[in-house]
């Protein structure tokens, strides 16, 4: 099977590199469970059995078992994975916050990519019933795959249930250079610049009613942390989640003082089943991939704080507005 290398020659080849040396990032629009199993199974067999590569499968939990069945069902049989080259991950857990998926993908790709090997990833961060904000950030993640793996020998297959809202499928056609739709693979003519696509997700965030507001500079950081902890406790956030909440807010407010002009404003409020902390400062976002690669914990640069926030929160929204940077950290009340 050489479908992958053939297709990748059509777009975005870094100069000087031969066919098959770039990112292969197709979308799979599936209409049934069987179509899903057939197409994803074929993609994985090509990678694992055909090329002998490693694969990462990050899909919603209920999709994992049927897929695993294809590869672990009969030892030595068709589709078997005797070498254990496939890593299985429940996307509903690992990708609960879509902002942490890319870091997982990059760690996997960095470990397995080399001149002989093209690691394969199945990433399905969108499912029917996913919330509006999460869907938007999951699509942003999808667009950022194009930037993060530009020119890399990596294959990322993204399944989309055709029962998803039409606007999601429209975005998927803008994000993926190749789309398999109605069982046919084609070049997507709607494919657009990933930064433009990301820009379309920078929608204004809803204004809260009656938030708790704390303006802070360096000398108020401890007060901000203490207030955030007490407030979350009074809202009933469990001790374990409170630890995450406090760590995320501690990194965010510290970043405001360190990188964001020396001061900021912390606002906290509750919506339905979530606590939200917003940190606004005078910082700028220059790298759209910030916080989406596991950082060196010893370096204060390279998005360490944002990466931690992504790991600990259920959703992170970042917006650059006129002269200011806004982070919203969401924590679900369990």
């Amino acid at each position: 099977m050489t479908t992958h290398s053939r297709t990748t020659t059509y777009f975005r080849q870094p100069p000087g590199r031969g066919p098959g040396s770039g990112l292969f990032h197709p979308a799979l629009f599936y209409r049934s469970d069987q179509e899903y199993l057939d197409a994803v199974g074929r993609f994985l067999r090509v990678a694992v059995r055909g090329r002998g590569d490693h694969a990462l499968v990050a899909v919603p939990g209920r999709r994992l078992e049927p897929l695993r069945g294809l590869f672990e069902g009969v030892r030595g049989g068709e589709g078997d994975d005797p070498a254990g080259r496939i890593t299985w991950v429940d996307m509903e857990e690992a990708g609960r916050n879509p902002g942490r998926i890319l870091s997982l993908f990059r760690e996997f790709a960095d470990r397995h990519e080399n001149s002989e090997s093209r690691p394969a990833i199945v990433g399905e961060p969108l499912w029917v019933g996913r919330g509006t904000a999460e869907t938007r950030e999951a699509l942003r993640h999808e667009a950022l795959v194009n930037l993060a793996f530009a020119g890399r020998r990596v294959s990322v297959l993204c399944p989309y249930d055709t029962a998803l809202p039409e606007h999601v499928l429209t975005q998927a056609r803008r994000i993926h250079p190749v789309v398999t739709e109605d069982g046919r693979r084609r070049i997507s003519h709607e494919y657009a610049d990933p930064l433009d696509v990301c820009g379309s997700f920078d929608t204004p965030l809803p204004e809260p009613s009656d938030p708790l507001v704390i303006a802070f500079g360096e000398h108020e950081l401890a007060l901000a942390r203490g207030t955030a902890e007490d407030w979350a406790s009074s809202c009933g956030l469990s001790p374990a989640r409170r630890t995450d909440w406090l760590l995320a807010i501690g990194e965010a407010t510290g970043n405001s003082v360190r990188h964001g002009g020396g001061q900021g404003t912390l606002r906290m409020w509750r919506t339905g089943d979530s606590l939200i902390a917003e940190i606004r400062d005078g910082g700028r976002l220059t790298d759209p991939l910030v916080g989406r690669r596991r950082p060196d914990p010893r370096s204060p640069h390279g998005g360490r704080g944002v990466w931690i926030m992504h790991q600990l929160c259920d959703l992170v929204e970042i917006r650059a507005e006129a002269g200011s940077l806004v982070l919203r950290l969401h924590m679900t009340l369990d």
Partner: peptide
Amino acid sequence: AGSAGYDT
């Protein structure tokens, strides 16, 4: 004792 952050 207390809370350590960028301020400390």
